[in-house]
Design a binder for these strands. Structure first.
Lengths: 336, 336
DNA sequence: TTGTACGCGTTATCAT
DNA sequence: ATGATAACGCGTACAA
């Protein structure tokens, strides 16, 4: 491996000069600078980020923890974050926590040892003692999509209540009066928001939501399928369903078709997220769109501002709330 | 930040002893070891991977370059790799190259500076001069899914020719004789393999493939859609299509439905990859399955064996070829 | 404008 | 079993 010292020896210069030249310091003669850079190029010099990081106390890496890159919601988020990071010379280290606190903790520790310059969390919202210590330490941190309860941290998210409101208004506007909400876990903040907005919209149309039609479940296809299979057998009066996310909605579609429902003829379904697969032929799900890629970008921007910003900015926590949008496709229609 | 020196001072020990204790060296008294570890815990000590990496000449990170995490083929691959890496105490740094050589090069450089202990490439197959230098340097490297042409490197992949063969046999076995192959770029090795195997299977059924029915395109939905929209208008005799991957297949489905074809009644379609969305209700694509997650795991395993293995193993390049499998769903049926 | 010397936190090689 | 010290490669305060 060729180091700064090697270049210095070759050129009969001190290695501080070489170091300065390679960092384009203004304190070094233009000509020597050129010579040094050329020689560095020729010798195939490559800075050692480990050594540099050790003295500068930073790694040039930012960490990101998500539940599962295999879940279609997260690739876009991660991609947005990576692009923004790369644009400012940082690498992005993405870790999967599987919605598991122990694993999340393990990742945070491992990642901290790597001296990542900051951390983006799109992970869990459950209590994580270790994470709270990290927050107290004033480690640069940005939460995305899900806000950690009860602490003052930077955040990039979406107005979930408005998202739910859009869904409710759409369904009610089509004349649906017997509607269900099929969720993931109701402990999750963003689900609570969607639910609240949904009910609010219904109320505006004079519909009182039947609370027994709020079905708790998980955030995946299988859960949506199972819950609605049961639901539709018991309640044949339902004409519209709002799913907590698109994965759940896809499960609902499957269940409904299996029971012989035509969509949207007999049953309207609206999802949430607008993930990649929702626009596919044969699915074409009506849903609430959120800018996943942009959220990733903004999270990195916020984080880097916090890291590199003036000192008085560092303690300033920021929040960015994006506005979701209704996307009408083919799984919703007028009520019979 | 609390360092080894802090602990040493507090305990009136030399920091070599502390370092040894924290690494559970057998050269240190059991009792002092316990004391040291407890004190480290109490003070909230956390090793500095930068410093350790500098002296050990390794970072505990392995790099992975993929085209785009947003493309449904790659999340599973990345996830498999991350799990395997984590299991052995490594972090995985994933970078997106967008099928762009300049970007790929930039990533490789940035990643190398970070002193990643090895590199997994699932990226491009085009000539990349810089990458060739890296290969020459004997940097630990594993190629996944796509093999870089003409060099002796470790590789984890799938028997693409057999995959194509399975597709051909399935279609021909259902009685289809007028079939098309709708591809991504034909320069790509794995596509060539699929094509070759496909034709071979047809030949076994006495079908001579009409070469004008091999349509080149890109690896995405839009391309599949456009190509087949044109194709089906010109050639109404086609009853089966083999798509270079599932994304293309989805585009084909859309085009066919738009033209009023019933699937599989009028037209059978078979894809390749079995990505997440292929099993969804409304799609249910017949396809060739490859173990993406497992490929990621194996790539990491190979790489770490190469890195940590005995010296005589280091130069030994290995190749693992997985066997694909036919998954029959609802887009293929008997020919009319 | 350039050079000298120190420190970043850790491990490894000598001693003791 | 423990300690002193040198190294890893780099940036920078200070001196020249």
């Amino acid at each position: 491996m060729v180091t700064i010292k090697d270049i210095a020896r070759k050129l009969n210069l001190s290695y501080s000069t070489v170091s300065r030249a390679l960092n384009s310091s203004s304190l070094v003669n233009d000509k020597t600078m050129r010579v040094i850079k050329e020689e560095a190029e020729r010798m195939g010099y490559m800075p050692n980020a480990l050594a540099r990081g050790l003295v500068l106390q930073k790694s040039g890496i930012i960490g990101m923890i998500i539940p599962d890159i295999t879940n279609p919601f997260f690739p876009a988020l991660a991609r947005g974050a990576e692009d923004a990071a790369l644009a400012r010379g940082y690498n992005l280290l993405v870790c999967n926590s599987d919605w598991n606190i122990a694993l999340e903790t393990r990742h945070v520790k491992l990642i901290e040892e790597k001296k990542v310059d900051g951390l983006i969390l799109a992970s869990i919202n459950l209590q994580n003692e270790y994470l709270e210590k990290v927050i107290e330490r004033e480690y640069p941190l940005v939460f995305v999509s899900r806000l950690y309860p009860g602490v003052n941290v930077s955040f990039v998210g979406v107005d979930t209540e408005y998202g739910g409101y859009l869904a409710g208004r759409h369904l009610a506007g089509l004349g649906h009066r017997k509607v269900a909400f099929v969720g993931g876990s109701f402990n999750v903040r963003s689900v609570q928001g969607r639910y609240k907005g949904f009910i609010k919209a219904l109320a505006e149309y004079g519909i009182e939501f039947d609370k027994s039609l709020a079905i708790e479940g998980e955030f995946n296809i299988e859960s949506g399928y199972q819950k609605v299979l049961t639901l539709l057998k018991e309640r044949t009066d339902i004409t519209g369903i709002f799913a907590a996310n698109d994965l759940v909605a896809v499960g609902i579609i499957r269940a409904a078709r299996e029971l012989g429902y035509s969509i949207p003829g007999d049953l309207s379904i609206i999802g949430y997220d607008d993930i990649f697969l929702s626009s596919l032929p044969g699915i074409e799900l009506t849903t609430i769109f959120q800018e996943k890629r942009r959220m990733g970008e903004l999270a990195v921007k916020l984080l880097l501002d916090e890291i590199n910003g003036k000192k008085h900015l560092k303690k300033k926590k920021k929040r960015i709330i994006l506005t979701p949008r209704l996307i009408v496709r083919k799984t919703t229609g007028p009520s019979k």
